[in-house]
Deep mutational scan, measured.
Amino acid sequence: MIVFVRFNSSHGFPVEVDSDTSIFQLKEVVAKRQGVPADQLRVIFAGKELRNDWTVQNCDLDQQSIVHIVQRPWRKGQEMNATGGDDPRNAAGGCEREPQSLTRVDLSSSVLPGDSVGLAVILHTDSRKDSPPAGSPAGRSIYNSFYVYCKGPCQRVQPGKLRVQCSTCRQATLTLTQGPSCWDDVLIPNRMSGECQSPHCPGTSAEFFFKCGAHPTSDKETSVALHLIATNSRNITCITCTDVRSPVLVFQCNSRHVICLDCFHLYCVTRLNDRQFVHDPQLGYSLPCVAGCPNSLIKELHHFRILGEEQYNRYQQYGAEECVLQMGGVLCPRPGCGAGLLPEPDQRKVTCEGGNGLGCGFAFCRECKEAYHEGECSAVFEASGTTTQAYRVDERAAEQARWEAASKETIKKTTKPCPRCHVPVEKNGGCMHMKCPQPQCRLEWCWNCGCEWNRVCMGDHWFDV
């Protein structure tokens, strides 16, 4: 396979590697080409510095992935760790964990309700045991953590790749202090920090972006993250068709209702045909949960890209028209025109101005929308079919299609509260000796007794199943 190397943020060049090629071997190839010592090179990928003893497969490097290699003399205490030698983080029983690669970060837990604080980093599902597709590297999971809308060759929703760059020099040479644990960490600028490894760059702020994971991409090709779309790892039924499908869209209502993408497309087109989208002054033209839940309008309007190009163009047109109407304007009634106009409040005669090729020149009556006339309008008909009709959803289907309910059931079956801080902690095999993952707590306690870890627990039921 081919990976592209950008040395000291210059133009990239291809390097041929195998899945079992080590990072140090990659350094040696680059060092020979650039005429520099291999031990002064640092390989940066997806916000993480890659260790010498890791392989291309370990690092989730795919065909035509772009890695950054910078030349920086080692500072005291760094060289041993980078070589894969006596790194205290690798000691058996050590409590410190390697910062998780962005290629394996899962933010789907952050669609849980606000009262489930902490689960994004504490609760991990076991539903990723799908067998890898044919042709994928051994052991590589097909679980997708992110979804994007690819405006490039795909023109559809695709699995996405999370990447990070330095907000100062805009190069992907920043190593994160810690990985993101929720969508806010990724979507809110300057929320996460790190250290830029580019020479002479003092940058410390992280800037995240997404790429389409279905095809090789260049540095400049980015895609918009659709953070309401998630892999259906909890096997929730769709609120409309009641099938279990994946991926799904999880509405931001209190129940976190789930809808499959085909039904979401149908829901949007139906509402669009009836012009029953909601115009929100802050958000724009949007839709609420299909069950009509309060405070559930979709905030990231790129989710409506699921409509496809033709329907999305209609959505944008109707949204612009609705904006004009909300501002007190009118639409030209001549067939084939429909231009938005903003006449004076007491102006009865409205002319669709033909300047700049935008208007048709038609003069019409503001009251009856017919060709302009003197005197009273002959008839004014009330528009028919403008009443909002509820999208029919079966109550039982709505009850079963809740992301929140599956989460709470998982928590109930696989977790116990920490005796000190009461945060839910998952036990997935292993011994009875637990350690609270909350940095402010870190209590060592017994899963069996529910009390602080002691010699009695150690001698009596340390390794009970």
Rank of each mutant, 00 (worst) to 15 (best):
M1L: 08
I2S: 13
I2V: 14
V3K: 03
F4K: 13
F4S: 07
R6D: 04
S9W: 03
H11R: 05
F13L: 04
F13C: 04
P14R: 05
P14G: 04
P14H: 04
V15N: 00
V15Y: 03
D20I: 03
D20Y: 05
D20T: 09
I23K: 00
V29P: 00
A31S: 11
Q34C: 12
P37G: 06
D39F: 03
Q40F: 05
L41P: 01
L41Q: 04
F45E: 02
G47Y: 03
L50M: 05
N52E: 11
C59Q: 02
D60R: 14
Q63I: 04
Q63L: 04
S65G: 06
H68D: 14
V70D: 03
R72M: 15
P73N: 09
W74D: 11
W74G: 12
R75H: 12
G77Y: 12
G77N: 11
Q78D: 15
E79K: 09
N81P: 14
T83H: 10
G84T: 12
D87Y: 10
D87P: 11
N90F: 14
A92G: 05
A92R: 13
G93Q: 12
R97F: 11
E98W: 08
P99S: 14
L102F: 10
L102K: 12
V105S: 14
V105T: 14
S108L: 07
S109P: 13
P113Q: 13
P113S: 11
V117S: 15
G118H: 08
A120C: 07
A120K: 15
L123W: 11
L123T: 15
H124R: 10
T125K: 13
D126G: 09
K129D: 10
K129Y: 07
P132D: 13
S141W: 06
S141C: 09
S141H: 13
Y147P: 01
V148Y: 00
Y149D: 03
Y149R: 01
K151A: 14
P153G: 08
C154E: 01
V157F: 07
L162V: 08
Q165T: 13
C166N: 01
T168F: 07
R170C: 08
R170I: 03
Q171S: 11
L176R: 02
T177H: 13
Q178R: 13
G179K: 06
G179Q: 14
C182H: 06
W183P: 01
D184A: 09
D185Q: 03
S193P: 08
S193H: 13
E195F: 10
E195N: 11
C196S: 00
P199E: 10
C201N: 01
T204M: 07
T204D: 08
F208Y: 05
F209L: 14
F210R: 00
H215L: 01
T217F: 08
T222Q: 12
S223G: 07
V224T: 12
H227S: 15
A230S: 13
A230R: 14
N232E: 01
R234K: 14
I236H: 05
I236L: 07
C238E: 01
I239P: 02
D243P: 01
P247Y: 04
L249G: 01
F251W: 07
H257Y: 01
H257A: 00
C260T: 01
C263I: 01
H265C: 06
L266R: 04
L266M: 12
L266Q: 05
Y267Q: 03
C268E: 01
R271N: 12
N273V: 03
D274C: 04
D274P: 00
Q276L: 10
Q276F: 06
V278F: 08
H279I: 05
D280C: 09
L283F: 13
S286D: 00
G292A: 08
G292T: 05
N295W: 04
L297H: 05
L297K: 03
I298G: 00
K299I: 05
E300K: 05
E300C: 07
H302V: 09
H302C: 10
H303T: 12
R314F: 02
Q316L: 14
Y318I: 09
G319L: 05
E321C: 07
E321I: 06
E322I: 03
L325F: 04
G328V: 02
G329I: 03
G329H: 03
L331E: 03
C332R: 03
R334A: 07
R334K: 10
C337H: 03
C337E: 03
G338V: 06
G340M: 07
L341D: 03
L342D: 05
D346V: 09
V350H: 03
T351E: 08
C352Y: 02
C352F: 02
C352R: 02
E353H: 08
C360P: 03
A363P: 06
R366F: 07
C368I: 02
E376T: 11
E376K: 13
S378K: 14
A379L: 11
V380T: 08
A383V: 10
T386H: 09
T387F: 09
T387E: 12
T387Q: 11
Q389G: 14
A390E: 15
D394C: 07
Q400P: 05
Q400C: 14
S407D: 11
E409I: 09
T410S: 09
I411K: 14
K412P: 09
T415A: 10
K416I: 06
P417K: 12
C418R: 01
C421A: 01
C421M: 00
H422F: 10
P424E: 09
G429S: 15
G430K: 15
G430L: 11
M432P: 01
M434G: 03
M434Q: 06
P439C: 05
P439A: 13
Q440M: 12
E444Q: 15
E444G: 06
C446P: 00
G450P: 02
G450I: 03
E452A: 15
C457V: 01
C457R: 00
H461E: 00
W462T: 03
D464K: 15
V465M: 15
